[in-house]
Amino acid sequence: MTIASVTPAATVSSAERFFGGHASLPVMPEVGRKLLRSLDDDGVSLGQIAELIGKDSTLAAKVLRLANSARYSPSHTISTLQDAAMALGLETLRNLAMAASLTGTFPDVKGLDRQRFWRHSMRTAGYARLLAKLLQGDADTAYLAGLMLRTGQLMMAMTEPDQVADVEAHAGEPGSRFSLESSRFGCTHADVTAALAAHWHFPADLVEAFKDANVPLEVKPFSMLAAILHLSEVIADACEQNGDRIAALTTAVPELVEHLHLDLEFLRLRLDACGDPGQDVELMLK
């Protein structure tokens, strides 16, 4: 699936138009900002993350619900954030908190089914984390980036809900959303997410990874994170459509698979072992 050729300047201009008019810029909660900054702090402790989450009662309640879900199979009821920290570990606790914080940042929008959207985003995040570990990338950053990858589409839907809904109705092939949006809007959800990340003062390399996620093989220098994001969305699309996730990769992005020298049979085993990263989305959205 190829993406229509659009100049970088035109893409930026097209993406920025979704931040005007009645589409107000969402505000990332302060706890979410601090969780993001903690990714660069190798000395952060479990206790500090638990204490930070506890400053937001709504966020804390979501994290506790998730910690008690079947996906994490707790041996006993987890009733405090300290229990959750010990049961889940730093990486999982922080990832769940970031997911819960981000889902609460955006309102319901016409043109996108909220539960379906965030289930797909959580799957993309989980697959990005898995791929980052396989490819020696930063798993925590990949999880956050995967979780955010489609948030630009929420901004697009606030402005042009019918057009976004039409794209979703025609996005029948894994990975096709990028091409359909590029033809329709002159930019993709990843471009709008890059603009959102820039408005939120995210690190420049993360903003660039979102921009590069559309066609990672066409960008120099090559961005491993951008490649991981594109692959993860293709896999999440296939999962949503109950298709073969490995076959989706070989059909949608064979050149990228070859470039990364991915061992697809090993990847299949890892995907099967990780289960469904989006299975607890209902608990996240309560």
Rank of each mutant, 00 (worst) to 15 (best):
T103L: 01
S14A: 15
D280P: 04
L131G: 05
V63P: 08
L52G: 15
S121V: 02
P26F: 10
A23K: 12
G54A: 08
L267W: 11
S14I: 01
A15F: 01
R184P: 08
N95L: 01
A50N: 14
A236F: 01
E255V: 01
G278R: 08
P216K: 09
Y127D: 05
F222Y: 12
C239W: 06
D42N: 12
L25Q: 10
S73Y: 08
L206N: 09
A227R: 02
K55C: 15
S176A: 09
A165K: 09
L88S: 07
D244M: 00
F178Y: 14
E218R: 12
I78N: 03
G32M: 00
K133T: 04
T124W: 07
V109K: 13
I3A: 13
L206T: 07
T103I: 05
D280V: 08
V109P: 11
H259T: 03
A67L: 02
G111F: 09
L271K: 11
Q82W: 02
S75V: 03
T7F: 14
L196H: 03
G32N: 02
F222A: 10
R33I: 08
D42M: 08
A197K: 00
F178A: 15
A60R: 10
L88T: 08
L283M: 11
L154F: 00
A194F: 06
F178K: 02
A23M: 08
Q115Y: 02
L59M: 12
T151Q: 01
E16G: 12
L149K: 04
S176K: 01
L36H: 13
M1S: 13
L25G: 06
P8V: 05
S183T: 11
I246G: 03
L271R: 03
R177S: 14
A97C: 09
K211A: 11
H22D: 09
S182V: 06
G54K: 03
V167Y: 04
A227T: 06
D83Q: 06
T151S: 05
L66A: 09
H120R: 15
P221Y: 11
S75I: 04
A198W: 01
I3S: 09
D140P: 04
S223D: 11
N95Y: 03
D56C: 03
A61R: 15
G32W: 00
L225W: 09
N214F: 07
A227W: 09
H189R: 10
V27S: 13
G47T: 14
I3N: 09
D56I: 02
T151D: 00
T77I: 06
G54Q: 07
L217E: 07
P29T: 06
T7V: 12
F18Q: 12
A252S: 10
K62I: 04
A145H: 04
L112F: 00
D162R: 05
A97Q: 02
P74L: 06
S45N: 12
A248G: 00
W118I: 03
T105E: 08
T124Q: 13
T77L: 13
L130A: 10
S182W: 04
L96R: 06
M1T: 05
F19N: 07
Y143G: 01
F266I: 07
S232C: 01
G172A: 11
C274D: 14
A171S: 13
G47M: 03
K62G: 10
